[in-house]
């Protein structure tokens, strides 16, 4: 199984990840190699095995419905690239 450069570009777009045109080829090569490595999983029949999402066989703990957080906007926005009137600014969103 190998990935084409077009597929790499498609995935990169899905992940909103800019990659240089001259690197696409090498990504395709690396990823194809990794896919080959992954293909080794197929050596093993796993029919009927329950997928394991988590190392701990536990259930979710629930939090009481109480407000514990105070307004920290100023602190949080000092590290923001662009803010105005308390809002985070981004290029125009077109719907």
């Amino acid at each position: 199984m190998s990935l084409t450069t077009d597929e790499v570009k498609k995935i990169a777009h899905l992940a909103r990840l800019g990659i240089d045109e001259q690197d696409v080829e090498s990504y395709a090569r690396d990823l194809s190699g990794i896919l080959e490595l992954m293909a080794r999983m197929n050596e093993l029949n796993t029919d009927g095995i329950e997928p394991m999402a988590h190392p701990m066989d536990q259930v979710q703990r629930l939090r009481d419905d109480v407000v514990t957080e105070r307004d920290n906007r100023e602190k949080f926005q000092t590290i923001a690239p662009q803010v105005e009137a308390g809002l985070y600014l981004v290029p125009k969103v077109i719907e």
Binding site: A12, H13, A15, R16, L17, G18, I19, D20, V90, P91, K92, V93
Partner: peptide, 16 residues
């Protein structure tokens, strides 16, 4: 950034 997609792809492309 030229637009939203550009903001995402370039920030992530250049930052990672």
């Amino acid at each position: 950034p030229a637009d939203l997609t550009d903001l995402y792809t370039r920030s992530r492309g250049e930052g990672f």
